[in-house]
Amino acid sequence: MSSASAPAVSAPAISVRALVKEYKSVRAVDGITFDVMPGGVTALLGGNGAGKTTTIAMLLGALLPTSGSVHMLGHDMARDRFRALQRMNFSSPYVDLPKKLTVRENLRIYGRLYGVPALEKRIAQLAEELDLGEFIDRGLGKLSAGQQTRASLAKSLVNAPELLLLDEPTASLDPDTADRIRAYLQDYCKRTGMTILLASHNMKEVERLCDNVLMMKRGRIVDRGNPAELVARYGRKDMEEVFLDVARGTSAAAPAPHHPDPESPEGEAA
């Protein structure tokens, strides 16, 4: 699943160059550049206000950058975003699906929006894999947080995306449900080769799922690497401590000695 092991010739699933977003006097994203190679899980980490959500919104085409470029699955999001959006999907606990509709109705609607062939079969498949059967015909608003998360995940997989953007996929879930979601995502990626970019505050989740990490602070990418490397380089015992070091600026460790630059020939940042 490691993107580091992906062939050097394959095109990045996500390619971001000198991306900037300014709101009046605030520079929410400050010239970030990175690539995410196909087939891996990459985490976008940072404290509140680091610029993760703004970055994800630009990757999805929901927010226009002030400058810089975003290519998703080879499509320039400034000119050709709908072709990319057809092949990707998104899930966030902070963006709801219509709660008055049942899970099945939501999946039918989004399945049609994404032009999914044999839609009812795909819904049945997702219902089985994500164990939605018990509540698939119930209103989304009547479900528990865990059930809603599974429904939202089903929506995000309805078009069998090649690229999935997840914003805190296990936020507010109990440990058991969160663990099941992580296991499912891990298994799904292994089976399908789907690429995931994941924003999370849960460092255990990052250690378990991700083979690459981009660490953001004040709109910039301040470090990157795989979790094991980062832990070793910072001389810490886990990603939680690395995160605190980066967020508080208390690290004695220098950032990556060689910041891989995607523009350089050997560059394969994430």
Partner: peptide, 11 residues
């Protein structure tokens, strides 16, 4: 329904 974020990142 707070559904805009899903609708307008679809195709």
């Amino acid at each position: 329904a707070r559904n805009m974020g899903h609708l307008f990142v679809s195709p």
